[in-house]
Write a protein that binds this DNA or RNA. Structure first.
Lengths: 155, 155
DNA sequence: CCTCGACCTCAAGTTCCCTTGATGTTACCG
DNA sequence: CGGTAACATCAAGGGAACTTGAGGTCGAGG
C-alpha cells in the first residue's frame, strides 16, 4: 500500500489535516506540486506533508498564501528543503515572527495586569482607567496602542 | 472643535488608523456604537478608539470579528471597560494568547536552528533532514508538526 | 447663494481562501 | 461484471472583512 513511497491526495490530506480541495488549490498557486499516475491521479512526495505544515504555520502568523509562495519560490518543490534553503526562509521570516511574538506578549501582559508597563499594583492603571491621560511616560514603559488618541487629545 | 468631548467618524478613523467605512462596518456588527447628532452624523466616545485598538490587536491574534463581538458582548459599548470587565476579556483570551505565543516561539526556534529540540549542532537535525524518522522521542523535546506523518507512516 | 468637504445610506464589488456541485474516470472488491 | 470509493476537472458558490460608488444631506466659507 506504500508503493513507490508516494502519497495520494487523500493520504496527504489526512496527514496534513487539510481537505483535498485545499491541496488542489495550493497546487494552482504553485505552493505544492505533485506528479501524476498514468490515470492522472496526483502523487505526492512525503516531504509535501511537512511543507504543508510550514504553510499552515506561516498562515497562522498572518502571511498570505502569496507571501508564502514568494518565500518558497526557489525551493525545489519536490524535495524537502536543505539546510541553506531552510535558513533562507528562516532569515526571511524570523523578524516577522519576533515582531508577532512581541506584539502578542505585549497584548497578553497588558491585558493581564499591566506587567508590561510596570504598574503591577493594578490600581490607577491606564488600562483599567483608559480615560486617564498619562502624566509622564518616563520609565521606559511603552504604550500598548501608541496611536489611540488618549495622549494626543488636542483635536 | 472638541465640543462635548465626542469624536466624528473621521477623527476616530484617523486616530485608530482605520477607514471610516470599516468603522461603519464594525457598527453593523455591533462591535462599536455611536450616538448621532441632529443631522444624523455619528459621534463617538473617546473610549471607542481604545476599543478599536483592542479589536485590531485581537484580530491579529487570529480572532474573527464575530469572536471579538462575543467577547465584548456584555460590555457597555459606550464606556471604557472597567476592571472586572477587562479581566473577563483577559481571562477569556489569555489561554489563546499563550497558545499562539508558544506556537510562534516554537516555529521561530525550529526554523532558526532546532533550539527547541535541543540539537544545537544543526547536524542530523530532523528539520534539516525531514525525511528521517525519529529513532526515539525521549528527551522531552517536542515535534514542531505533530501530525505530519513522518512518525506514523503505516498508511 | 454656491460650493466644498465631510458625512449619510444602501447595494454591489473585491480579495482571499477555499468548498461545493456537476460530471466523468479509475481501481478494486465480491 | 457491477458497484462503490477515491480521484479528476471546471465553474460556481460562500464567508469574512471590508471598499467603492451612486445619490443625497449638512454646515461653514467666500
Amino acid at each position: 500500500m506504500d508503493k513507490s513511497n508516494l502519497l495520494s491526495i487523500g493520504e496527504v490530506a489526512r496527514r496534513a489535516g487539510v481537505a483535498p480541495s485545499a491541496l488542489r488549490y495550493y497546487e494552482t498557486l504553485g505552493l505544492i506540486s505533485s506528479t501524476r499516475t498514468a490515470a492522472d491521479r496526483r502523487r505526492y512526495e512525503r516531504a509535501v506533508v511537512r511543507r504543508i505544515a510550514v504553510i499552515r504555520a506561516a498562515q497562522r502568523v498572518g502571511l498570505s498564501l502569496h507571501e508564502i509562495t514568494e518565500a518558497f519560490r526557489d525551493l525545489d518543490p519536490h524535495r524537502a528543503p536543505n539546510k541553506a534553503e531552510w535558513s533562507r526562509i528562516s532569515r526571511r521570516w524570523r523578524p516577522l515572527l519576533e515582531q508577532r511574538i512581541a506584539d502578542l506578549e505585549k497584548l497578553r501582559d497588558d491585558l493581564t495586569g499591566c506587567i508590561g508597563c510596570g504598574c503591577l499594583s493594578l490600581k490607577s492603571c491606564r488600562l483599567y482607567n483608559p480615560d486617564d491621560v498619562l502624566g509622564t511616560e518616563g520609565s521606559g514603559s511603552r504604550r500598548l496602542f501608541p496611536d489611540d488618541g488618549f495622549t494626543t487629545d488636542p483635536a
